[in-house]
């Protein structure tokens, strides 16, 4: 399936390491890439995260959102900084959520996916939830605005 990364409307060449299923990878940690099922416990990777360049998280169908939680735990709690790929045929309408949860590459064969990816980060200029994408939340912006107004008034 075509692979997309942010910044490119066309598929990129998939020339990275081939991810191994988690159970296999535990036996033989030769690969720097691991493929997780959405039922796998991501925290089991914790001691070995530094050696990983790619983790793939799977969306067996659009409506199964378990991998969003896996992604946030990897990024936010475990501090994983390598590539985080959404597999299983991602649709463009998932992109704003995926990006906010820390995914940075995507498998998709949907027409128009690449163009949608270019616009996905700006589709919503406002976010309410703090996540590791670092975007200031509405609450934070309001507090900032308030302190600016207060200091201007002083």
């Amino acid at each position: 399936m075509p692979l997309f990364r942010e910044g490119s409307a066309t598929p990129v060449v998939n020339d990275g390491p081939v991810p191994m299923p988690l159970a296999e990878w535990f036996k033989d940690r030769s690969s720097t890439a691991v493929a997780l099922a959405n039922t796998d416990d991501v925290t089991s990777l914790q001691p070995r995260l530094a050696g990983l360049a790619l983790i793939t998280l799977h969306f067996p169908k659009f409506s199964d959102g378990r991998a969003y939680s896996q992604a946030r735990i990897l990024r936010e709690r475990l501090g994983y900084r390598g590539e985080l790929r959404a597999t299983g045929g991602v649709l463009q309408d998932q992109l704003p959520f995926l990006l906010r949860c820390g995914f940075d590459s995507f498998e998709s064969d949907q027409k128009g996916f690449g163009e949608a990816l270019l616009k996905a980060r700006t589709l919503f200029s406002v976010v309410y939830q703090p996540t590791e994408d670092g975007r200031p939340t509405v609450s934070q912006l309001r507090l900032q605005h308030r302190s600016v107004t207060l200091s201007a008034a002083q």
Binding site: F62, S63, D64, G65, Y68, S69, R72, P96, F97, L98, R100, C101, F124, V127, Y128, Q129, T131, V138, S139
Partner: peptide, 13 residues
């Protein structure tokens, strides 16, 4: 309401 609106993690429960 604000926290749950377009929550990135919990839109496909």
């Amino acid at each position: 309401r604000q926290w749950s609106t377009l929550h990135p993690e919990f839109s496909f429960l």
